[in-house]
Design a protein around this nucleic acid. Structure first.
Length: 138
DNA sequence: ATTCTGACTTGCT
DNA sequence: AAGCAAGCCAGAA
């Protein structure tokens, strides 16, 4: 995993405000690089320092293995939820999801400016690498 | 070069 | 609503 990609992803995740969330695929799209699985890989290994619970599956399911912890955050910051999360809190049973329809983060103009800078930097690095690769491959 | 793996997505039952 | 198969993207072995 290129560290430039990692920092780019984390940079975007840091912008996501409390009470909102986006899918892994959304982050990849905002970044204009990589795919959902790449973003997932970054969050899995390097996401501990950022609001990782605000990035989840497109279905609204919390990051695998971190449901309880994530749910505490959602309740605290009033993230729109669907399903019986109350029961999940009490008994650990029951299905629930973040209601991405309502919770999906809509970046402000300022956010987009920051995102543009981040993705531009990333693209420069990637481009430079591809040029280097071409030179070495012949 | 191949094959396997994974904090993914989408489309179809 | 829940499960499944394919597709997808990169990194690792």
């Amino acid at each position: 995993m290129r560290m430039e990609y990692v920092t780019a992803v984390l940079g975007v995740v840091d912008l996501i405000p409390p009470g909102t969330a986006v899918s892994y695929g959304d982050v990849a799209e905002l970044l204009g690089a990589g795919g959902p699985r790449q973003v997932g890989a970054v969050m899995s290994r390097y996401g501990s320092g950022v609001p990782w619970w605000r990035v989840l599956k497109a279905s609204g399911e919390a990051p695998p293995g971190h449901e309880p912890e994530a749910l505490r955050h959602y309740v605290t910051e009033h993230t729109p939820l669907r399903g019986d999360h109350e029961r999940f809190l009490r008994t650990g049973e029951g299905r629930w999801r973040v209601d991405l329809g309502k919770a999906r983060w809509a970046p402000t103009e300022g956010d987009f400016d920051v995102i543009d800078v981040i993705s531009d930097q990333l693209e420069r690095h990637l481009h430079r690498l591809s040029v280097a690769d071409d030179g070495m491959s012949v």
